[in-house]
Design a protein around this nucleic acid. Structure first.
Lengths: 218, 218
DNA sequence: TTGACTGAACTAACTAGTTCGTACATTGCT
DNA sequence: AGCAATGTACGAACTAGTTAGTTCAGTCAA
């Protein structure tokens, strides 16, 4: 039973009228479902069953399966952008800043496997849903600007070599971090390699950071 | 209409009795379908329609949807292993050999996007189908042995530094090459970047080779 | 004549999306 | 304040279309 009044005693959302909570609840369950089974494999009935609300509400708030999936995708991108924005790299020396950024990316992607899996799913579908999203280009600027800034400081300080495109740096960071999550199932199976343990992750993290640093150093 | 006789004029498989050809044909169409739409998104009826044969034959040869998918997956892995085996790196200097291997991997993965996409699909499904395959561990040995051999030669020659695990080298190569195909849709969309043109591919290929070389050099 | 191979039509289960009916809350009117 | 009208939030059962898998009566080559 939810409360009829919020802490401040305002009328607020009541038991049956908590629109935002219901939306959130559906979105959370749907994120798990689509990340776990893909878009085609994800089942609306399954999502509805694990929700506090009903199937009717899914269609009420999100129109159809695709609308729900797109909302899930946008929310996932929104979340990572928000967190990326809190990263303060300006006060660090270029090398340290880059290390921090790569390490953060590695950790974030490892801790948010649902996000990685949603991106995989979207790529399987050739990005056709993402194309319909207007809100997506905002994700762009942030990371690239951060890398660009720190790279230029590094070049000016003589620690990084010239002529590298910041987008290529970002692509390499993404690739190395992403793969560790996205291909864990098949890679660990074929090469009989532990990729889950804290030990294995720490080791791999160090290698990824090192790989990027060696690439940009002058 | 297929020919009743092969080029050599031997009785060979005839129009209606070409079991191996029929299997191949189904497998080829199914590879495209599953690579294009994923396992759940792939449709048996769709595959049947694009085949020279009928839906009945799919079940005749592959038992069920999962059997067909698994056959597709195993065939894809078999193909890459076969090609990798033809790579002759022993006669090259360690650095050149590694460059050749990375370049080959980049090119192969770019030219065989269906393979990449099947691996993505399998990872979305947590590798549950691959687990059922007995034939898979053979894929292992080849690549790792090649890298191990060339790496040790490089260390002995003093051009590569000590203490690197060959599997980590392979993982980094795979990650950098894989990402370029697997995430092309979303990445090029978000960062408005051309990743398809021959020019863009050549540039990226050089960066990937360079990244790996810089990582192992002493 | 035999047996590998084939196709059209069918079925049972599933799945996205809808219908209809209800409870509650808010706003505007008196 | 009290009442009516309107809009928001919700659930159970239903529908129409789809999809994996089957049946069965055959065809064709050897």
């Amino acid at each position: 039973m939810r409360e009829d009044r919020d802490v401040a005693g305002r009328p607020g959302p009541t038991r049956t009228q908590d629109a935002e909570g219901t939306r959130r609840n559906i979105l959370d369950v749907a994120t798990e479902e689509f990340a776990g089974k893909g878009y085609s494999g994800g089942r609306i009935d399954e999502i509805a069953a694990r929700t506090n609300t009903s199937k009717r509400m899914i269609y009420y708030y999100f129109r159809d399966k695709e609308g729900l999936y797109l909302a899930v995708l946008e929310e996932a991108y929104r979340r990572i952008r928000t967190i990326e924005n809190t990263l303060d790299l300006e006060h660090l020396e270029p090398e340290e800043a880059l290390k921090a950024l790569v390490g953060f990316t590695f950790d974030y992607q490892n801790e948010n496997q649902d996000f990685i899996r949603l991106v995989m799913v979207e790529n399987i579908h050739h990005g056709e849903h993402l194309k319909k999203s207007r809100a997506i280009h905002d994700v762009n600027a942030t990371v690239i600007d951060k890398i660009k800034g720190l790279y230029q400081r590094g070049v000016a300080a003589g620690v990084f070599r010239k002529g590298i495109d910041p987008i290529d740096i970002h692509m390499s960071i993404s690739a190395l971090c992403f793969f560790n999550v996205s291909n864990r199932a098949t890679f660990s199976l074929i090469f009989e390699r532990d990729m889950d343990s804290a030990r294995a992750l720490a080791k791999r993290r160090a290698i990824v950071v090192d790989t990027i640093l060696r690439y940009v150093r002058g």
